[in-house]
Each structure stands twice: as C-alpha cells, then as structure tokens.
C-alpha cells in the first residue's frame, strides 16, 4: 500500500509518500512497524494524540483496519479555512 505523510509529519520523515509492504492489520500495528524502522519514524510517531490518520482518504482512528487498503495517510490536525 501507499503510505502518505503531510505537513510536519512529512518533514520529519523526510518524504511525502512511500510504498510499504506490511502484514499489519490495523493502523496502530502499521505505526509500530514504521517506528521500529528508524529514529525519524519513532520521532514523527512519538505522540499519536498529535496525529490524525486517513485510510483510503477517509478520516478514521488508529484502531481502524487497513486490510485491503490502498492508501494510509498520516498528518497533524487540519487547519483549513
């Protein structure tokens, strides 16, 4: 699946998008896998209360299933308008 990062999450991880092969069943499991990769992921995902997640472009929470998902995106709370 594609994993996307926006705003300061993108800056901390250092890329906007990457293809990830994973067996993770939920967003939380995916986050744990990413955190284990490298320090910059551990830093970006250090405080999940400061993050939001969308699965296939729908806002959801960290318990959500990602089975069959094409796209998971992580970003800070939105500031439109």
């Amino acid at each position: 699946m594609d994993v996307l990062y926006f705003a300061w999450v993108r800056e901390r991880i250092g890329l906007p998008k990457e293809a990830v092969e994973t067996e993770a069943a939920t967003v939380s499991e995916l986050v744990e896998e990413l955190k284990a990769r490298e320090e910059r992921y551990a830093v970006a995902f250090g405080d999940l209360s400061a993050l939001r997640v969308a699965v296939d472009q729908e806002l959801t929470d960290f318990d959500a299933s990602i089975r069959g998902a094409r796209e998971v995106a992580f970003f800070p709370p939105m500031t439109g308008g």
Binding site: P76, P77, M78, T79, G80, G81
Partner: peptide, 23 residues
C-alpha cells in the same frame, strides 16, 4: 467543518523561520 475536517495545513514563513499553524 472545513477548518478541522478538510485536509489543509498552513505554514507561516517569516524572516525568523517557518512554523506550522497549530489547530
């Protein structure tokens, strides 16, 4: 709803640096 449910993020850039606007 647009302010906190549409995926936009603002960054303010001044001579002192750049800061993401916090929700």
């Amino acid at each position: 709803y647009l302010k906190s449910r549409a995926p936009f993020w603002k960054k303010e850039i001044s001579r002192d640096g750049a800061d993401w606007v916090a929700a």
